[in-house]
Design a protein around this nucleic acid. Structure first.
Lengths: 119, 119
DNA sequence: GAAATCCCTGGAGCGCGCTCCAGGTCAAGG
DNA sequence: CCTTGACCTGGAGCGCGCTCCAGGGATTTC
């Protein structure tokens, strides 16, 4: 089975080693397997999960929600709850996109106004 | 001339009174006029500026950049620099919208995947 | 003119999400 | 082996953007 050292996991996931440890402490990652000497070895599954975590963080999901989602993922019987959580999040993402686009339009109006002033 | 008390300015602008004071301290607002007793009286111009500040904050402009933009605005000869700043910001806003949309698509794929699992 | 609000200042505190550090242990190359 | 570099833990620190507080003065309302 392919595994990854902390440095490799950081490289692949795009999170720093410190952040990976932080996420594990926070319960966002389930406990990572260790070598006999205590060094972490990340599996491909771990990296897959980290990929989703990256998606959720990039879209502004707070750490606390991510933790809740991670906890739900430990229990097979929570599929519906997980989907609900993701759909709520999707709605919030849509709202921020909408806000961003609306405000961007205002920003561009301002720029056009400057242009009209002979800039 | 119409003026606004701190509470009214907060109400209209959507910023808290504390935030208004903070922005003034930081130089994001030019010094607000005062009554003889030292109470602030916001003008319509102040509120117009706050409206732009809100737009820029909503689109993620950091306080430091906002401050720089405010400083430029004190000098009439900086129109070009101000436009450049806004256009840089517009590009960053566009990037975040793009990232958000891309990640939202991944999120929705994940939701569809759950749906395929019979949720 | 007294009571009830509102506002003032300077500075401390906070919530979030990491990030860094000291003081050590482990692992891989020569 | 021995060196070198990666990794470990627990906990402190940080940058951002506010937010709150004490102790006091100003304003409005009746």
């Amino acid at each position: 089975m392919i595994t990854y050292s902390p440095a490799q996991a950081a490289e692949v996931s795009g999170f720093s080693i410190d952040t990976l440890r932080y996420y594990e402490r926070e319960g966002i990652l389930r406990p990572i397997a260790r070598t006999s000497g205590g060094h972490r070895t990340y599996t491909e599954d771990d990296l897959g999960w980290l990929d989703l975590v990256h998606c959720l963080r990039d879209t502004g999901m707070p750490i606390a929600d991510l933790k809740r989602y991670a906890e739900l993922s430990l229990d097979e019987a929570t599929l519906a709850a997980r989907v609900a959580l993701l759909e709520d999040h999707d709605r919030r993402v849509q709202e921020s996109i909408d806000t961003l686009r609306g405000q961007q339009e205002r920003l561009r109006e301002k720029i056009r106004w400057y242009r009209g002033q002979g800039v």
